[in-house]
Nucleic acid binder design. Structure first.
Lengths: 227, 227, 227, 227
DNA sequence: ACTGTCGGGACGCCCCGTTCAT
DNA sequence: ATGAACGGGGCGTCCCGACAGT
């Protein structure tokens, strides 16, 4: 099994390097060669784990799926905000997440099916919004699907601009601004007043997670999901 | 001089083809070869007009600068909306505009200075917002610069998602949704009630422009600018 | 006739520019474009006078044929030396001569027949050596043809090395050294003692020429040639 | 390791083909394509071993450095002659040597540092001449450095002319002629009389080398070097 | 099972000599 | 004599196999 351990590590190394390069250069300009150099791995190794550049990209793509589940909140809409803020933070700190989003937005990623990634993201938001609506958190006129697409689209754009202007350094702030501007037209005033959209909320949330309080409500969270 | 006419036409043909390819493939994946094929032009012709792929991209970039001036409106904020809606429409109908925006958002466009394009767009919005604010159209807490960046970022993302999902066919609708969600947190209620954010407004505005009523208030518009 | 004057001047301008570029870059790396720029002439003009790059090179090649005839000397061998020293000087000062020699030595000059140039040069030397021999200036064992080829070959190499080391700045000195080393094995001691191989001899000779004493023995020279 | 063997062979094949093409066409006119064809190798193979045309040229350049050491002789000046004659022979029989010299003389070889090659050659000659002088083999007025440069330059030119006229077929003869003409003004008569400058001397020397008498005085030679 | 070396070839960009209408 | 267009290659990049070791 020692063998497999190493294999897993190698795979991870490659993925990490690929993520970095994809993020910096975009799919097309990223070269296998640079990934190789950065991962300190040879062609043979890479092609053992991934049989093509495309598959490598898909590997990066899928690697970050396990969204860390977040602590449940009073309102669904707060949970929506939380996931957005946490994503912002992870975008700044985790190359794989960065590359994932980058790839999804990269027009040049020929042959990569970028739609599912957005679908998942949108659906996730739509589900949360639907739950919020059924609990009376949203204004009556809100169209859940439309809003979900809007939020994802706007978020993507904000992230892109942040990247262009300052390497995403102010991403969390920009995302907070985005939510602050969108929520008044989505959420009922009573709920709106109680939402926390502060910039450092993501940090606090992730702090909690690492304190291993996680498992507790991780289960609770999934149990509660179907309410 | 007839000679030069043809040159101008050729240049235009190339630009148009380049715009299409850049739009479809992204800067990096676009190949000179495909542009050549699409433009029905030879390498020689292309390299006579543009000395490199990069310069070609810059050509596309600059070609659409002439924002058609729009008719002045009662409120500045309505003018902001108008420019957004009109841009949405042009994005759907004009390949060059499409490519311009695509290029500006394209990470792979090495050596292309994408920042100025955004700067201009943001500044334009910031100026309009400032004017609106000084006329009491905005809520007191609105930070003009922050909001301008937000609007541009969100718009970009919405446009990107629309492209991905349906080739921008519903772009105008999505932009309208965006404005409908953002404005309540920006504009004072009194003004908000009078805004027109209908999807087909862009079409109507551009219809007017072509009726050549343009010159009339084009002058008036500039004269009034200083109010 | 004014027309023709201009044509001649244009032709000359082009030739001069071509010479410079050929000299600096070599035949293959020289580009029509650079010649055009340097000559301040358009493509049409160039292709009116020379129908191809090759022909242009041939033009450069032939332009310097008119070896300025030199004043006759007591011994034929001194005349041989004179022509070598004068060539050295012209190589330093006249771009066309430089380019001519450069082209003749340029392996990359595809399609250019470089042999005739050498033939002429060798034959010229052989003739002078033969005359010298018939007048008893040479050692009995000297093989005129062999020696002529040797001199031309050695001269070429010395020139090349001088170019490589210092842009031919010391060419005249090197040529003098060459003659000083070769002559003892070619010329009879009595003549050898009276030869002038000083470095600045070329300058003095060319000085004379410009004082227009030229025509006088120019005729005399050709008359005497057959002796 | 069998793998590596093949690589070494491939590398050699490429070098050989490159040498041939560089020799025939000159650096600039030589095309990678022709080298590929001649070597029966694909671009991938070539660019695995050499990352650019320039580096390929440098490879050719360095490959022939190992001057076969020659048997020591009674006089240093004879050793000088020997090295010249042997080089002449190798120029005729070994493509790599030919290309090396060709490249060094090729003006078009942009980016190739041709000067060191000449420096080495000149210095080698200068050292031998200096040794000869200190042993009283040379005429008192001989300037060692000047003469070394002369010899190298003249040799180069003679070689060039031989190539042009008959593909270097008579190179050894021409080199012999060169030495025969130069030596009388360099060497004292007593030594001069005993020198062997016969055309086929190179062949005899190389014959000895192959008879494996080599090692014997190869050591002796280096030991003796300091005398 | 995994890693490294060497090689294969399709393109990509662009340079450059040349022609054609005017 | 000119501006515009033509098109053949040139060099180099890059994704990827084919195997040989381990």
């Amino acid at each position: 099994v020692a063998r497999q351990d190493r294999a897993v590590r190698t795979r991870r190394t490659i993925l990490e390097a690929a993520a970095a390069v994809f993020d910096e250069r975009g799919y097309n300009s990223a070269t296998i060669g640079e990934i190789l150099t950065r991962a300190q791995v040879t062609k043979g190794a890479l092609y053992f784990h991934f049989s093509s550049k495309e598959e490598l990209a898909m590997g990066v793509f899928e690697e970050q799926l396990p969204d860390s589940p977040l602590p449940p909140q009073d309102t669904r809409i707060q949970e929506l905000i939380d996931s957005g803020l946490v994503l912002a933070r992870r975008l700044r700190t985790e190359a794989l997440v960065r590359a994932s989003v980058g790839l999804a937005l990269d027009q040049g990623a020929t042959g990569l099916d970028r739609i599912p990634a957005f679908r998942m993201w949108i659906d996730q938001n739509a589900r949360t919004l639907a739950a919020a609506k059924s609990r009376g958190e949203l204004l009556p006129l809100v169209d859940v699907d439309e809003t979900a697409e809007l939020v994802v689209g706007a978020y993507s754009g904000v992230q892109l601009l942040s990247q262009l202007r300052c390497q995403r350094q102010d991403l969390e702030h920009r995302v907070a601004v985005l939510y602050n501007h969108l929520l008044p037209s989505i959420v009922v005033p009573a709920v709106l007043a109680r939402l926390d959209v502060s910039t450092n909320r993501a940090e606090r949330l992730l702090g909690l997670l690492e304190e291993e309080l996680v498992p507790a409500w991780a289960e609770a969270g999934t149990a509660q999901k179907g309410d």
